[in-house]
Amino acid sequence: MLDTDWSDSWRGAFRIELRAEAIGLAWHGWPVLPGTFPAQANAEGSWTGPVPVHEDWADRLGAHPNEVAGWWTGQPYSLLVATGTVLDAVEVPDELGKRAARLLRATGHPAPIVATPDGRWLFLTTVADRIPEELATDGEVRWHGQGSWIPLPPTPFQHGVVHWRVKPDVWSWRLPSADAVHSVLARALDQRGSDRTALVGAGQFAAA
């Protein structure tokens, strides 16, 4: 596991792959950033996920791919992409993510989707200035817009590696409309609520 064997061989393998992915994303115009990695846990040994390694990360957005390549020359930094300029992301629990992914496939226009080892799915979209109220007020949904970032594959976590559920090249690197994806996520959220209500009703009926 990554949390028990972050050896030099692990670091070397991840650095090469992460560097290649970062350069490719930068050539597509995505604002990539280097992030912390599990071996950089604090003194208590905890690591809650990657954050930008540079305090001035917001000033580095849009760096040339050659500069991006240099960031990964010596360290296996996590691969982050800043949100709010080129793309946004909506982060949801995996159960809701799977439901929304099925609905998106039915439309024939899949969105790029990232999954993390801790059971979270991230739906990438065009930039938006808000999300629907039902998503904004749901405690399990998080919107990544201006001033935020998300991890991209193959960023390592302590218990696995971030991976694509739907790669961006599936739709020729076009990002789906934020409104369209938000609408699908809201439908998935509504379906989840209906299913839970039905289960509660069934339980009450059985108890009677």
Rank of each mutant, 00 (worst) to 15 (best):
V53P: 00
T73V: 04
A100I: 01
R105P: 00
G29F: 06
A89G: 15
I131M: 10
P52W: 00
G24M: 14
L25P: 03
A100G: 13
A26E: 07
R130P: 01
L25C: 02
A100H: 06
G29M: 13
G49S: 11
T83H: 07
R130C: 13
W71C: 07
A39E: 08
T73Y: 06
F37Y: 14
V92F: 07
D138Y: 09
F37D: 01
L79P: 00
R130V: 10
V114N: 09
T48C: 09
V127F: 02
W72M: 04
P31M: 00
D129I: 14
A43T: 09
D118V: 03
V86H: 05
G119H: 05
P117Q: 02
F123W: 04
H144E: 11
V90Y: 14
S46W: 15
L124P: 02
Q40Y: 00
G24C: 03
V68Y: 06
T85E: 15
W71N: 09
W143N: 08
D118A: 06
A43I: 13
A63G: 12
F123L: 12
P34Y: 05
E67S: 08
R105S: 14
W143I: 12
Q75A: 12
R102N: 14
A100C: 03
A22G: 08
G62F: 03
A20F: 10
W72E: 04
Q40C: 10
R120E: 09
P52A: 02
H28V: 03
W71Q: 05
Q75K: 15
I131Q: 07
E95P: 04
T137E: 15
V32M: 05
D138S: 11
I131K: 02
E67A: 14
L122G: 00
R142E: 12
W121C: 00
A58W: 01
A20W: 07
D56Q: 13
V127G: 15
G139L: 12
V51I: 11
I23R: 02
